[in-house]
Design a protein around this nucleic acid. Structure first.
Lengths: 337, 337
DNA sequence: TCTAGCACTTGGGTATAGAGAGTGCTAAAG
DNA sequence: CTTTAGCACTCTCTATACCCAAGTGCTAGA
């Protein structure tokens, strides 16, 4: 058995299936690719590929379709990441310029990636973990309510309202705020809790109870909410690919909304040598995503993830290229601001 | 022609069509409802209703289906808003308690409404317009970059990074911040721009140029971004109702993502005497929403909108009840915090 | 090891017929 | 004038049969 040709056949099957969206047979294969052998030979190779579990036939007399494992081999051994066209690079650059806010940057980025790939794009908020505290604000909203704001040098702004156990006038709050700021400013966000705990003893005894409540709120801000959040765009593409494919999109939409499953998956994905990570079909380890693949990579200092989600039958080389390129531009923008 | 009975027939058609999801004929109608007349009589009434444009027959030998106009008459004249069950009220109350953040409240609310109605729920961020400024913060991020934060008493926090034309050290910024705060605190958010413009003359001449830049940024915050934003939940329900109905959900998903169309629609909808507004099918004046209806109402002081989006064939009485009830609880929660 | 040929399987498309549902119309009854 | 019963007609939907095209696996020979 000719091993290199066998893999070449697999590549041809994957490419044709992605392109024509229907099972591909031995005859069509020799017509569309210069394989230099007859269809009968291809049939032998295909039988071998099927034995290996890389392709399957939906029914006896249809062509073959790649399995998850088949896509995996394709992605690992056969796919060359296709460089982006100049027009695409231009589009990336022009769309990402002129964004101010972090929210705005991520919003534009995810839309861009979605349009570039014609698929659902997702981006995870940069994690606060490695960022440093730029500012801490505590604003009195009502006698017992305080709005806490934590601003990191990564540009993220976290806020939360906490209710405290005793009345707190403006002056007392200002004193506490100053102490908190001194204790945390310039230090890693991840250590906000520890740093605040360390200064408790230096406060007026009368203030310690309420200070502890506020400190707890700030510490919670440092680990919570937005870092565990995903922005999505292009869900409409799901419905479109669905029209010519039997993928029930309802569970996928649920997964996108719930975010929990997706966050776990993204955090588990590790980029390979080419700088992108791919989870194919069941590899996502989520029932709702059993028929979809995720192509993702990290960006920025914190290695937050950005990626694309689509049917397993997707154009992996192009998608991987787009994800990688967008992630690079995004990192550049964030570093520059 | 018996007018009251004609309307009764319309009601029966709408209810049966919503329930059984297929065109309803004269025979089925007399079997399922105690109309007291024969099917032939119903047929006459149905012919009249069709002349009025309230129902149509998909083909010669199928039952009738309500038109947008038919639903309109049903909603206006025939639908009694059904009170919620005790269990539902309980669910509302328990789910909305324990929320702290405004973001959190809206997030929970929209999920709740979606589950309650089995449809897509949308909620608009409370508008800053009528709110008052609680706090203004300006934080130096880099020599020429300033993070502006505007906190309203409605609980919303707006932030933006602006780049200014000259270096600005901490002390200069602190002075400006203090001036801005004094000029705007406690006054309506809508007048931030005017109030800041008024104090420009009182600043040091050297500071005026950069102050104007910051003031412009703050003024922009007061009118922009989040107030024009919608949070959605339950998009997966769209795909489900789609499975047994021919509604292309792709444009709808697009509209939900774009938000622009939806925001315009929501702002144009005015609640009727029963406290809810309904836009049916083409009444939405958006091609992408031609096959969907929106049931919405205002909440809170600012009359921001909350509502539900689903196929025109929806259970209007139940949906209207759920929207109204959730909006009331939401208003209560926001007023209390 | 590759190729050619062939029998076999099977899904999809088309034509046909029949059942079922529903309508509109007419004529008679209230 | 309204309601009812009856009936012919239309149309969709389903089932059936059938054939065709695509594709396979296998065997024998180059």
């Amino acid at each position: 058995m000719n091993e290199p040709r066998k893999l070449e056949v697999l590549r041809a099957i994957v490419e044709d299936y992605v392109h024509y969206r229907e099972p591909v047979g031995s005859k069509a294969l020799v017509e569309r690719h210069r394989l230099g052998v007859s269809s009968a030979t291809i049939r032998n190779d295909m039988a071998a590929l099927e034995d290996d579990g890389l392709i399957v036939a939906p029914h006896t007399s249809a062509g073959r379709v790649p399995t998850d494992k088949g896509y995996r081999v394709f992605v690992d051994q056969l796919a060359a990441v296709r460089p982006l066209s100049a027009a695409e690079k231009q589009a990336i650059q022009s769309l990402l310029e002129g964004a101010d806010d972090l929210d705005d940057v991520l919003e534009r980025t995810v839309r861009l990636l979605s349009h570039l790939t014609n698929q659902v794009a997702v981006v995870q908020y940069p994690q606060l973990g490695r960022a440093r505290v730029r500012h801490v604000e505590a604003v009195s909203l009502a006698p017992r309510q305080v709005l806490l704001v934590l601003i990191a040098d990564s540009g993220t702004v976290e806020q939360r309202v906490v209710t405290v156990g005793e009345d707190l006038d403006h002056d007392r709050l200002a004193v506490l705020r100053q102490s908190f700021l001194a204790a945390t400013a310039g230090k890693p966000v991840s250590q906000v809790g520890a740093n605040l705990a360390a200064i408790m003893d230096s406060l007026l005894p009368a203030d310690r109870a309420v200070a502890a409540e506020l400190a707890a709120g700030l510490a919670a801000l440092a680990v919570s909410s937005r870092e565990e959040r995903i922005v999505t765009a292009g869900t409409a593409y799901l419905a479109r690919s669905n029209s010519d494919f039997l993928l029930s999109i309802s569970p996928v939409l649920e997964a996108l909304e719930e975010q929990v499953v997706l966050l776990r998956l993204l955090s588990e994905m590790a980029s390979d040598a080419r700088g992108v990570a791919v989870a194919i079909g069941h590899e996502t380890a989520a029932d709702s995503l059993a028929e979809t693949s995720v192509v993702a990579t990290g960006y920025g200092r914190d290695d937050a993830k950005i990626g694309v989600l689509g049917p397993t039958r997707m154009d992996y080389p192009a998608t991987m290229a787009a994800v990688r390129a967008v992630a690079r531009y995004l990192s550049k923008i964030l570093a520059g601001s």
